[in-house]
Computed example of a mutant assay.
Amino acid sequence: MGRDDAAAPQRGRIERVGATRERILVTAERLFAEHGVFAVSNRQIGEAAGQGNTAAVGYHFGARTGLVRAIVRRHAEPIERVRERMVAVIGDRPDLRDQVSCLVRPSTEHLAALGVPSWYARFSAQVLADASLREVVLDEALASPALRRLLAGLHRCRPDLPAEVVDERDGMTGQLIVHLCAERERALAAGTATPRATWRDAATGLIDAITGLWSAPASSAPGDRTNTTSDGGVG
């Protein structure tokens, strides 16, 4: 028996394990997107993925955070490739819209490539709604060199605003991206109308909105008492 023949059983086992992990990841992403991360049990995921062993999910991924992290990493690589390319093209150009484009388009291009139906945008919205799981996603995102470079570029080119306003608009930006993408993905899966015809057009609308958001002056710092007119209206 040759060396290749002796290694064949091991290769076969590795391929089977890889295929099992992939089925579990795809199934978990769909179920989490549709029902919520903590509304679905490992048993339900295993059964839907065709696993007779009810402990298969825990065996391959450990705790729920391990499964969520694996799903995020499964999508992170293609998104990172697009972002690296875009960031390299704009370089250190101090243009707010270019920087925002590099923030938005890698994700929308990836969602377009997934086809219909897809579940990653809705999965992301479900995960980011949970404080403990949000940290998992943020840790994975900030491991991206291209994203760290992009965020530094955004910091340099956005208007000079109070720190609390910057924090507020950071949150608004994330919410806009995550939830607009999730709503569009849901509509496409259901076959209902969407405001924009393509993911590329949807990204353009998002870039317009976020650029406008960051360009707007700050009327007052969060927490300041709202001014009112004598007749009770807002001034």
Rank of each mutant, 00 (worst) to 15 (best):
T108D: 01
A187L: 05
R186K: 07
Q126H: 06
V137C: 07
A39R: 13
A113D: 15
R73A: 08
Q126G: 06
V234G: 10
L161W: 14
V100C: 05
R156L: 12
D4S: 12
A141F: 05
T108P: 02
Q10M: 11
T229Q: 15
Y120V: 07
A131F: 10
G62M: 03
L213Y: 05
G2Q: 10
E109R: 13
G235F: 04
A202P: 00
T228P: 04
S230A: 14
R156G: 05
D231W: 10
G233S: 15
L114T: 11
I90W: 04
A33N: 01
A28R: 00
I71R: 08
G191D: 04
A8N: 11
P217R: 00
L138I: 12
L180R: 07
D130E: 12
L180P: 00
P9F: 01
V72P: 03
G50P: 00
A63Q: 07
P222D: 12
A125Q: 04
S219D: 13
R156A: 15
L114S: 11
E15Y: 06
Y59Q: 10
V37H: 11
D4E: 15
P9D: 09
I71W: 06
Q99E: 07
P159C: 09
D95G: 13
P195Q: 02
A33R: 02
R23D: 03
A202V: 03
A48Q: 13
E164G: 12
I24K: 02
S124T: 10
G223Q: 08
R148S: 10
T27E: 00
A202I: 00
V234K: 10
G205Q: 09
R23T: 00
V40H: 05
L142C: 08
G171C: 13
T20M: 12
E29T: 05
E183Q: 04
R83Q: 12
Q44T: 15
A113H: 11
E140D: 11
G58Y: 14
G18P: 01
L114D: 13
T65N: 13
A121W: 06
G18T: 03
A182E: 13
G171S: 12
P78K: 12
A39I: 08
V234C: 03
I90L: 13
V17I: 11
R156S: 14
H75C: 04
H110P: 01
M172E: 13
V68T: 12
E185N: 03
G171Q: 09
R3T: 15
H155E: 15
A202T: 07
L31S: 01
L67N: 13
G153M: 03
A6M: 14
